[in-house]
Computed example of a mutant assay.
Amino acid sequence: MQNNCARLVESLTAAPVAVVIALVCSFAHADEAPVPVTAVQTVALTRGPISRPVHAYGVVAASASNVTTIDLPYIARIVQMRVQAGQSVVRGAPLFVVQADPAAVVAAAQARSAAQLADDDLARTQSLFDKSLATQSQLAAARKAALDARQALAAQNQLGVGNGKTTVVAPHDGVVTQVSAGQGDQVQAGAAVLQLSAGTRAGDAQPNVTLGVEPSDIASIHRGDGVTVSGLSTALQSAHIAGRVVMVGAAVDSQTQLVSVGANVPTGQSAFIPGTRVKADIDTQSGVHWIVPRSAVLHDAQGDYVFQTSSDGMAHRENVKIVVENGGHYGVDGPLDAARKLVVVGNYELHDGAPVRVENAKQGPAQ
Score class of each variant (00 low, 15 high):
302 Q>N: 14
48 G>A: 06
151 Q>P: 03
363 Q>M: 14
65 S>P: 00
282 I>D: 00
131 K>C: 07
294 R>H: 02
223 R>H: 04
74 Y>V: 12
275 G>A: 03
244 R>K: 15
254 S>R: 10
135 T>R: 06
32 E>C: 01
109 A>Y: 02
287 G>W: 01
98 V>M: 05
218 I>R: 03
335 P>L: 08
54 V>R: 10
122 L>Q: 15
260 S>V: 07
57 Y>G: 04
190 G>E: 05
305 Y>I: 13
20 V>S: 11
331 G>D: 03
182 G>D: 10
171 P>G: 02
325 E>Y: 01
246 V>K: 09
92 G>H: 01
37 V>A: 00
336 L>K: 02
20 V>C: 02
191 A>C: 05
127 S>D: 15
322 I>T: 04
94 P>T: 03
67 V>E: 01
51 S>E: 11
353 G>A: 07
269 Q>S: 14
203 G>F: 12
306 V>E: 11
213 V>E: 09
107 A>G: 04
235 A>Q: 14
43 V>K: 06
5 C>D: 06
142 A>V: 14
359 E>K: 13
16 P>R: 06
295 S>E: 06
34 P>Y: 00
173 D>G: 15
99 Q>W: 03
77 R>P: 01
165 K>Y: 12
133 L>E: 05
247 M>I: 03
344 V>M: 05
152 A>Y: 12
162 G>E: 09
15 A>C: 00
67 V>Y: 00
131 K>M: 15
150 R>Y: 12
179 V>F: 13
24 V>F: 07
260 S>G: 03
147 L>D: 15
222 H>K: 15
161 V>H: 06
63 S>T: 00
109 A>E: 13
264 N>P: 04
173 D>Q: 09
189 A>N: 12
230 S>D: 13
137 S>I: 08
352 D>S: 10
6 A>S: 08
194 L>S: 02
348 Y>N: 07
79 V>A: 12
97 V>K: 06
42 T>R: 09
338 A>M: 12
79 V>Q: 11
350 L>T: 02
184 G>N: 14
43 V>E: 11
25 C>P: 06
135 T>V: 08
206 Q>V: 00
321 K>Q: 13
201 R>I: 13
50 I>R: 06
203 G>H: 05
26 S>Q: 14
117 L>M: 10
61 A>N: 02
367 Q>W: 07
349 E>I: 08
23 L>N: 13
291 I>D: 03
326 N>P: 05
29 H>Y: 12
360 N>C: 08
244 R>N: 12
153 L>H: 03
112 R>E: 15
360 N>H: 13
98 V>D: 06
246 V>P: 10
57 Y>T: 10
143 R>D: 12
339 A>Y: 00
308 Q>L: 08
232 L>R: 15
198 A>N: 07
26 S>P: 01
345 V>K: 09
346 G>S: 08
363 Q>G: 15
234 T>L: 15
322 I>L: 03
160 G>C: 05
78 I>D: 04
330 Y>G: 14
25 C>G: 10
22 A>M: 07
25 C>I: 10
234 T>K: 12
75 I>A: 06
